[in-house]
Amino acid sequence: MRFLSRRLVMPNDLNFAGSLFGGRILEWIDEEAYIYASCQLDQKSLVTKHMGAITFEASAFQGDVVEFGLETTRVGRTSLTVCCVVRNKGTKQNICVADDIVFVHIDNVSRKPQAHGKTKEELDLLPIEPPGYK
């Protein structure tokens, strides 16, 4: 799993108890997973079809930096399934795991599923990070 992106937990991201709001982290997961899937397939016309089990394991607080680990778990004819782990950058403790996020490639005009033309084997060979990214 590659940790590709980071976010700073800001005051507007907190719930009434002072920890990171679950809805905010789900919004971030959907966005980060879309960006990852879009880059993997080299396609922009993707929609989120399904998010499976979401497990919240720890809290994050104002000032924490969280990072998003993503990997492709399955490639279908029109779909891509992604796993996302959100962890605290400093402690490396998992905050949240979303292990079944399915994106479907759609036709721009008809909005119907359309083959993306990629295989898992092809995607496994792609470099994710740009050179020098740490």
Rank of each mutant, 00 (worst) to 15 (best):
L26V: 10
E67G: 08
D42H: 14
L123P: 04
D107Y: 11
S38G: 04
S59E: 01
Y34K: 07
E32F: 08
K134E: 15
A33P: 11
I95T: 00
E57G: 00
V82Q: 11
G22V: 12
G63S: 08
G22F: 07
V97M: 09
I35M: 08
F61L: 04
T72M: 03
F68A: 05
F3G: 02
F56H: 06
M10G: 00
I128Q: 06
G76Y: 09
W28V: 01
K49I: 08
Q40P: 03
W28P: 06
C96K: 01
K134Q: 14
G69K: 07
C39M: 14
F61G: 01
H50K: 14
C96V: 13
L126C: 10
D13H: 07
P127G: 00
G23N: 03
K112Y: 04
A37P: 09
Q93D: 09
P127D: 06
G90H: 14
R77E: 14
I25G: 01
V47F: 06
E57K: 15
C83Y: 02
K118M: 13
E57R: 14
T72V: 15
D124F: 00
Q93I: 01
E32T: 12
L80K: 10
L41N: 10
N108D: 14
R111S: 11
F61T: 05
E57L: 14
M1T: 07
T72E: 07
T119F: 09
L70A: 07
P113Y: 01
M1E: 04
L46R: 04
I101K: 05
E71V: 06
C84L: 14
R74S: 05
E31L: 15
V47W: 02
E129N: 07
K120F: 11
S19T: 12
I128R: 10
Q62H: 04
G132E: 03
A115Y: 09
K134F: 14
F3N: 01
K120S: 12
N108E: 14
R111P: 01
E27Y: 13
Y34T: 04
R2L: 15
G90A: 13
P11H: 09
P11A: 13
K112F: 03
N88S: 02
P131T: 00
T81F: 05
V82F: 10
G132F: 02
A37V: 13
M1W: 05
Q93F: 00
A17F: 00
K44R: 12
F56L: 14
R74Q: 13
R77A: 13
G76M: 03
L14M: 04
N88W: 02
P113S: 10
V86Q: 10
R2F: 10
D30S: 15
L123I: 11
P130F: 04
L70M: 12
E71Q: 12
Q43K: 12
E27F: 12
S5V: 08
Q114W: 07
D107L: 12
T81A: 11
P131C: 00
Y36V: 03
I101H: 05
V104C: 02
E31S: 10
E27P: 10
G132I: 08
L20Y: 00
E67I: 14
S59P: 03
K49M: 13
A17K: 00
G90P: 00
L26K: 02
A58V: 01
V75D: 07
H116D: 06
V109N: 09
F103G: 10
G18D: 01
K49G: 15
I106N: 06
D99I: 02
G22R: 02
F56P: 05
F61W: 03
F16A: 11
N108T: 05
V85M: 01
